[in-house]
Design a protein around this nucleic acid. Structure first.
Length: 554
RNA sequence: GCGCCCAUAGCUCAGCUGGAUAGAGCGCCUGUCUACGGAACAGGAGGCCGGGGGUUCGAAUCCCUCUGGGCGCACCA
């Protein structure tokens, strides 16, 4: 029995009790679902609900009385073996081993689909993240959203949403000129120009340009700059894509800002927003009245000199997402961009969208790394590709994914570097590897989940305390995934995997799967193999959502 | 000045849209191995949940305020 099934059954009992007049609760006060929780104290049963405490007042009674009436009905739920009223009115529910154990087979049969749901079916989501300027390599500042963004996309898909992961390439604007100028300067053996990009990678890009255009240094600056700009940009973007691939992050779309300009989308955006009545002219510039929608000042779209601003491109980009049919546009930004929330929402509102529904801006606090080596190549910043080769993709991704985005995070690379259980990723990965090893061992000893073409599974045999514990955490997994999707918080999954891993290790310690020595193979061995394999499956499913591998061996 | 985020064990951090005795890992101390892989398990020490008010059956969680940190407030991109 999963907590969802139990929850539904309790809801039904509540409705029946109200219908029968046992509880004087107005229909409007009946909740859509009654949540059950895992009690911290095992003496409090397998599941508990505080529904009586919440509703007693509305029902005109006291919580214990409410609990007594509802509890009497809960006892008749199939699979429930005991219902107790505790403290101020908690209902503690105990499930019989057979009902709890049945979950093990259900998980194995569901396979990779276990934990998916359809809560977000019909949602067409555009998620934009990373979007680092193509003027340098990805570095520590981009890693958090690369890991977390990719994970959120996976989690939303697991909840049934249709998700497009998108990278906005800022390939227009003055930083590209500075970039080209920096490469040119290095090509001629000069240093970093004033305000230009430092770092050895600029020289590397120069060499790259030189192999493609051997005579580049013979050209005048005016002739050379556009060539350099194009070639260096291409090489740098390629480098970024390769690093993301190494990191296990796949974007569906790389969206070029330059193409917005070339297609006249910026001018179109000004026209369209003007038609909506939100654009005005002042001081020679063209403004969007974002203050109508909660921004603290209006924003310039076209400067007095006729040049469009970056903000205008943002507006055009938003309209592009809208035109491409995305009902929800999610932006993942660093904390240094939190001032953008209001203006982005204002763009959505000005475009006729609902800023509460059609746009969502998530802010990630910055990540620092204690005592990390700086990259001379990239100009004394920490490169993502160095971080990956140094600590490993799995360790970096897991470390970033197990914390919520809204708290500042300090990574300790010396600790992550150690391949020991000081790093939680190894604890979880080891639990998976161990369960696979256990399965190999059991199968080698002749244990099979099926006998004579039929499943050999006797759920009631899974009655050990550690089995009850493990099953309940496996049963909670789908609701954790659903909640992670709803809140865009993949760390909930990582934390839950750690709980499952702990429960697995304790079970492993207490209950053997394979027979020992010359012992005969029994239903108990076979049934435990189902539970073992169910655990492997849930750990693998969860790690997949985090973009972390689930090794067969370590 | 205005705005956003944060404050929980020695350290890094969880705390499930208000619930029962506030948790995990690491670090420290003590145990468990003729081992289905010990990269494991069991136990212990260690907390006025930054301070002060409020809301209610009940607050780490919600509201107000103070303190102490991080970040942002362009006709830059």
């Amino acid at each position: 029995m999963t907590p969802e099934e139990l929850s539904l059954a309790i809801s039904a009992c509540l409705k029946d009790a109200v219908a029968a007049g046992e509880i004087g609760l107005p229909a409007s006060n009946i909740p859509a679902e009654v949540r059950v929780e895992r009690p911290k104290n095992r003496d409090h049963g397998d599941w508990a609900t505080s529904i009586a405490l919440q509703l007693a007042r509305a029902a005109g009674t006291n919580p214990r009385e409410f609990a007594a009436v509802l509890g009497a009905r809960l006892k008749s739920i199939d699979g429930v073996s005991a219902v107790d009223i505790a403290g101020p009115g908690f209902l503690n529910i105990t499930v019989d081993a057979g009902a709890a154990g049945a979950l093990a087979r259900a998980i194995v049969e569901a396979g990779a689909a276990y934990g998916t749901n359809s809560a977000l079916a019909g949602h067409v989501v555009n998620m934009e993240f990373v979007s680092a300027n193509p003027t340098g390599p990805l570095h520590i500042g981009h890693t958090r959203w690369a890991a977390l963004g990719d994970s959120i996309a996976r989690v939303l898909r697991a909840s049934g949403a249709e998700v497009t992961a998108e990278y906005y390439v800022n390939d227009a604007g003055s930083q590209m000129d500075v970039f080209a100028q920096s490469v040119l300067s290095r090509l001629h053996g000069r240093g970093v120009p004033d305000g230009g990009y430092p770092g050895e990678y600029i020289a590397d890009l120069g060499h790259e340009v030189l192999t493609q255009h051997p005579d580049i240094r013979e050209l005048t600056e005016v002739a050379a700059l556009p060539v350099i700009r194009g070639a260096a940009y291409k090489a740098q973007l390629h480098d970024i894509k390769r690093t993301l691939a190494e990191f296990g992050v796949d974007f569906d779309v790389y969206f070029s800002e330059q193409e917005l300009h070339d297609a006249g989308a910026i001018e179109d955006a000004v026209v369209r927003l003007r038609e909506q009545g939100h654009v005005y002219d002042d001081g020679g510039a063209v403004w969007l009245r974002t203050t109508d929608f909660g921004d603290d000042k209006d924003r310039v779209m076209v400067r007095a000199n006729g040049e469009p601003t970056y903000f205008a491109a943002d507006a055009a980009y938003y309209l592009s997402k809208k035109d491409r049919g995305y009902t929800e546009k999610i932006y993942l930004l660093g904390a240094d961009h939190h001032g953008y929330i209001n203006r982005l929402k204002a763009i959505a509102a000005a475009a006729g969208d609902d800023p509460e529904v059609n746009i969502e801006v998530l802010i990630g606090q910055l990540v620092s790394v204690n005592g990390a080596k700086l990259s001379k190549r990239a100009g004394n910043i920490i490169e993502l590709k160095d971080l990956i080769s140094w600590l490993g993709k799995d360790a970096v991704r897991y470390s970033l994914a197990r914390f919520p985005a809204d708290s500042p995070l300090a990574l300790d690379p010396d600790l992550l570097k150690k391949h020991s259980n000081e790093n939680p990723v190894f604890y979880v990965q080891y639990a998976h590897a161990r369960s696979r090893g256990t399965a190999r061992n059991a199968v080698a000893a002749g244990v099979d989940r099926r006998v004579d073409g039929k499943d050999s599974f006797e759920a009631s045999l899974l009655d050990h305390a550690t089995e009850n514990e493990l099953l309940s955490h496996l049963g909670s997994y789908p609701s954790i995934v659903a909640r992670a999707a709803e809140l865009r918080e993949p760390h909930r999954i990582a934390r839950h995997l750690e709980v499952i891993a702990g429960a697995y290790h304790r079970w492993y310690d207490a209950c053997r799967v394979a027979p020992q020595g010359e012992e005969p193979i029994t239903d108990l061995n076979r049934t435990r193999l189902w539970l073992n394999d169910a655990t492997s499956q849930v750990l693998a499913n969860g790690l997949e959502l985090l973009g972390v591998s689930a090794p067969e061996r370590m």
